[in-house]
């Protein structure tokens, strides 16, 4: 019998996690220092990062390219509205609404995941549109007119801003940790195997449907959380906006620019997207055209994105993980 040693965390990986925890702590204390404008902007950034990380979990790690993630973004917000209407405390409703959207994702997964590649991508878009139309039938939403989460107006504006910020930060920290834990677990390995070769994955004993479902539902929950936090900061709920395909376009842009299939890439992509929006967001159509040109440029000339390219050039990997067999030749010893 031989035993082998493995390494799951590199030194730089541990340092990065420690640093990230420090950043989160500073961010948690920020509302005591920063202006309301900064807090609002950061809340938006948290939503973008959350969306990007969720889309990468789905497409980058499980090979499930969806253009319908706005379905869960919208359903989460809608369910939160319904729960508040039924008398639930707003901030609790935001969380429960996201959980509800995660539950909605389970029956959707049973048929959407039978489709592959482009069929799955388009089916998800169709599902999102159908959900939007169904939601518009609810008198509470008033069709195209939409509605508002008026219950939040009962809060003092500063308190509301800070609570939404903390909810966003907490959701981001939770989903980043959950994603990292999942990707380093056997489910993460199975998802990547399925992404690389579905039939070969099945041939080594991986229950392909089950693994895809776990990833799909988690990503739906994450997108729904982003949707409810967005609702809390925007207050208004417009079916055309909350179920808008632009959310998925943004996710795609952020992941493509930052680096598909890496843990760090989507975070970097989200920050870049946020900055672009801050600087050029007022240019309207030209801004969107610019985003499109950049996305096409990355797809053609830098398909691994900024972080993926950086990692290839430097060999430096912080969080994307993997399991190393330590000194395979010398470390093994008889026991």
């Amino acid at each position: 019998m031989t035993t082998y040693a493995v390494e799951r965390w590199t030194r730089s990986g541990r340092v990065t996690v420690g640093a990230a925890a420090g950043v989160l702590l500073v961010l948690a204390l920020l509302p005591t220092l920063a202006t309301g404008l900064v807090i609002d902007k950061l809340t938006t950034l948290f939503i973008y990062i959350l969306l990007a990380v969720m889309w990468n979990l789905l497409a980058g790690y499980a090979g499930l390219v969806s253009v319908g993630q706005q379905a869960f973004f919208g359903v989460g917000g809608y369910l939160a509205l319904r729960l508040v209407d039924a008398g639930m405390t707003p901030y609790l409703a935001l969380i429960v609404g996201a959980v509800g959207a995660g539950l909605v994702a389970i029956p959707i997964s049973t048929f959407a995941l039978r489709l592959k590649g482009g069929e799955f991508a388009i089916a998800m878009w169709v599902i999102a549109e159908v959900l939007r139309i169904v939601v518009m039938f609810d008198p509470l939403v008033q069709g195209e007119t939409g509605t508002s989460l008026l219950a939040l107006n009962a809060f003092d504006p500063d308190l509301r801003r800070n609570l939404t910020y903390w909810l966003g930060l907490g959701a981001l920290a939770l989903m980043l940790s959950a994603t990292m834990w999942l990707l380093r677990s056997r489910i993460g390995a199975a998802a990547q195997a399925i992404r690389d070769d579905e039939e070969a994955a099945a041939s080594i004993g991986i229950d392909v449907m089950r693994v895809k479902q776990i990833i799909f539902v988690l990503a739906a929950f994450g997108c729904a959380l982003a949707g409810t936090i967005w609702l809390a900061s925007a207050i208004t709920f417009l079916p055309r906006t909350n179920f808008g395909v632009q959310w998925t376009v943004f996710m795609l842009f952020m992941v493509l620019v930052g680096g598909l299939k890496t843990f760090e890439g989507p975070i970097i992509g989200a920050i870049i997207f946020f900055l672009l929006q801050e600087v050029f967001g007022d240019l309207g159509v030209w801004y969107l055209t610019g985003l499109g040109v950049i996305a096409v440029g990355f797809a053609l000339y830098l398909p691994d994105g900024l972080w993926g390219t950086w990692r290839q050039r430097t060999g430096i990997d912080l969080l994307s993980g993997g399991v190393m067999l330590k000194n395979p030749v010398t470390v093994k010893r008889a026991t």
């Binding site: 690389d196 070769d197 993997g322």
Partner: peptide
């Protein structure tokens, strides 16, 4: 049909 995005060891470990 190796899993191309993984290392050799990770391929075997997943199996």
């Amino acid at each position: 049909r190796p899993f191309l995005g993984m290392s050799v060891f990770e391929n075997a470990l997943t199996a």
